[in-house]
């Protein structure tokens, strides 16, 4: 079940208003709705192999947590649910490390990898997700092939009843998410579905009535974009105004390759205008005159 969301970007809207391009393209993020996590029948606390394999395939995880009474009327226990889900991810990672260390016993070399895994195992045994350990980039690179679940960026979404949509995230949930190195937000999926049904013109008034400044959808998309550590660079002209997603820290050379591989191969330099300068001065020519290009 795959969904693609356009990332709202007021800068793209503003540039499109100036250039009136034939086409406007927003950055996009893909979302996959995985089947519900199920415990392996033989060990209640461990996710089954199929679920683990699916989770490993994602670049980041969004964990939806129940913030409303269940069908039997039992009150929600979001902090406990978060904790037990985190424990499952940690156990799945620990199993991978133990298996790998077992194999490394029989192989020579791999000293750095062995040392790192031996250092991570006790943290996992203590229930600490890998993402909270502040691993250095070179350590992360060493671990990249393992696709550790507790190292994946995580956004916690507390799904609350409509009446609680404007209530701040409960502190116990916020604290639990912080402890796991995760971002967290509350939203009411039911309310969002209602908002989506409304005419765009009616949405703002509806949100204001509920005491909300914007839809949770916009907050969710921004949070997901940040979770993936993505930023956009913008290109504009008569043909197209477009936001291009790149990882934070991507070089101009690699970013150019997003537009076309030829541009990456033949790259000499990039002439860049900061968005704020462009908006302040109003045109490319004025930015050039002012030495802002």
């Amino acid at each position: 079940n795959l969904g693609v969301i356009k990332v709202p970007d007021a800068r793209v809207d503003a540039l499109a208003a100036i250039y009136q391009p034939r086409k406007t393209t927003y950055a996009e993020v893909s979302f996959v709705d995985f089947p519900p996590a199920r415990s392996a029948p033989e060990r209640r606390t461990v996710l089954d192999a199929a679920t683990v394999a699916q989770l490993r395939d994602a670049d980041a995880l969004v964990e939806v947590v129940r913030g409303f009474p269940d069908v039997a009327g039992a009150p929600p226990t979001p902090a406990a649910d978060l904790e037990s889900f985190a424990a499952e991810l940690v156990l799945a990672d620990l199993a991978v490390i133990e298996k790998r260390l077992e194999r490394l016993k029989k192989e020579k070399g791999h000293e750095r990898e062995r040392a790192l895994l031996e250092r991570l195992a006790p943290s996992l045994e203590a229930g600490t997700p890998l993402r909270t350990l502040g691993l250095a980039p070179e350590e992360r690179a060493l671990l990249a092939g393992f696709a550790f679940l507790s190292l994946r960026p995580l956004l916690v979404v507390l799904n609350v009843p409509e009446a609680a949509a404007a209530v701040p995230l409960p502190e116990e949930v916020a604290a639990r998410a912080r402890a796991e190195g995760a971002e967290a937000m509350a939203l009411s999926a039911r309310l969002e579905a209602e908002i989506a049904e409304l005419e765009p013109a009616d949405r703002d008034a509806f949100l204001a009535d509920l005491g909300l400044a914007e839809s949770a959808r916009a907050r969710f998309i921004r949070a997901s974009y940040a979770l993936l550590d993505l930023i956009s660079f913008l290109t504009t002209g008569e043909d197209e105004c477009r936001a291009w997603p790149i990882r934070r820290g991507t070089t101009a050379l690699k970013a150019a390759g997003k537009v076309h591989s030829d541009i990456e191969r033949g790259f000499i330099r990039a002439e860049v205008i900061a968005y704020d300068e462009f908006m302040r001065l109003g045109s490319e020519a004025k930015c050039r005159e002012a030495g802002k290009l």
């Binding site: 893909s30 969004v62 964990e63 939806v64 947590v65 979404v157 959808r217």
Partner: peptide, 22 residues
Amino acid sequence: MKVGLTGFPGAGKTTVFNALTG
């Protein structure tokens, strides 16, 4: 880039998915 939605059964994961991607 792909974001995976997960969670325990009964948390309303698919409702969230549909509301946000629909």
